[in-house]
């Protein structure tokens, strides 16, 4: 399923003294099965952009085309779209409301108008995908640990079987292990279902490790849109935007400044180790 964002501009409170431009002439094409990292500091417009992709916010001008159809058209089936473009908000555990975990995950597919049987099948599958064991299915979601709640909430979106899964800072507040587990889960979900994943993140290390394309937002515009390797070549510009490069890339720059003939096109620890060993002649 392809998503095309065409000259999209979005303003808050248009026509009033409080008017502010959140998105400014955004052009973007998202292909099937990509893993996109969307980065930018707070207020850069990244959260606003993802809310355009499933029609929760409406563009001030320009549009979003999903499989060739303008989602802003009258009569466009937005409910179906929200099943296809699944959006997991920040701190998604704050949206849990049902009396037990299983019922909560059923909420999404039920809203899509699926049969009882299909709904339950999908809920079961989604909970398995995020690694929630059967014994928790009939517990109150409020009794789970923070990390478990987060995964149940993500299952609530997964159960709609989205073709594009967007997650807004899904690892916020998780500890390192919880973070790695969740991001690994996302990778395996993508492998199993072939869905596109858009990961909104503050962590350069995470997007460098997981994404195969990075979109950088700055002041409501797209500053860079390329592979991680290419994007992180713009170290100085990224720093000016209040972002930066992965810690290990920064280390390589420091080595180079100190006279080591190392390449700075390095974004993971393992490649850094290989490069340093090579340069030191071992």
């Amino acid at each position: 399923m392809s998503i095309i964002v065409n000259h999209l501009t979005y303003r808050y409170n248009p026509g009033t003294a409080m008017e502010s431009t959140a998105l400014d002439d955004i052009n973007l094409k998202i292909e099937d099965g990509e893993f996109i990292g969307l980065i930018g500091h707070t207020g850069s417009g990244k959260s606003t952009l993802v809310q355009q992709l499933n029609g929760i916010l409406k563009p001030t001008s320009g549009g979003v085309y999903v499989d060739g159809a303008d989602i802003g058209d009258d009569g466009y089936d937005l409910k179906k779209l929200r099943g296809e473009v699944g959006l997991v908000f920040q701190y998604p555990e704050h949206q849990l409301f049902e009396t037990d975990v299983f019922k909560d995950v059923c909420f999404g597919p039920k809203n899509l108008g699926l049969t009882q049987k299909e709904t339950e099948l999908r809920a079961y599958e989604a909970l398995k995908q995020v690694g929630i064991a059967d014994e928790y299915f009939y517990q109150s979601p409020f009794d789970l640990s923070g990390g478990q709640k987060r995964r149940v909430a993500i299952a609530g979106v997964l159960a709609m079987k989205p073709k594009v899964l967007i997650l807004d800072e899904p690892t916020a507040g998780l500890d390192p292990k919880g973070r790695d587990e969740l991001l690994d889960k996302l990778t395996s979900i993508r492998q199993d279902t072939g869905c596109t994943i858009i990961l909104v993140s503050h962590s350069m290390e995470d997007v460098a490790r997981y994404a195969d394309r990075i979109v950088v937002m700055h002041k409501g515009r797209i500053a860079f849109d390329d592979t991680p390797m290419e994007v992180f070549k713009h170290r100085d510009e990224l720093k000016e935007m209040g972002l930066g490069v992965p810690g290990i890339t920064e280390t390589m720059y420091k080595l180079k400044d100190a006279g080591f003939p190392v390449s700075t096109d390095i974004i993971t620890v393992d490649t850094a180790v290989t490069e340093i060993m090579k340069v030191l002649g071992r």
Binding site: N54, K79, R82, G83, F89, H94, Q95, F107, N111, M160
Partner: peptide, 16 residues
């Protein structure tokens, strides 16, 4: 603000 956020989150799950 929280109401607005939860509303959007549930809309993303197909709530009407």
């Amino acid at each position: 603000e929280e109401t607005d956020k939860i509303m959007k989150a549930q809309m993303a799950r197909g709530a009407d």
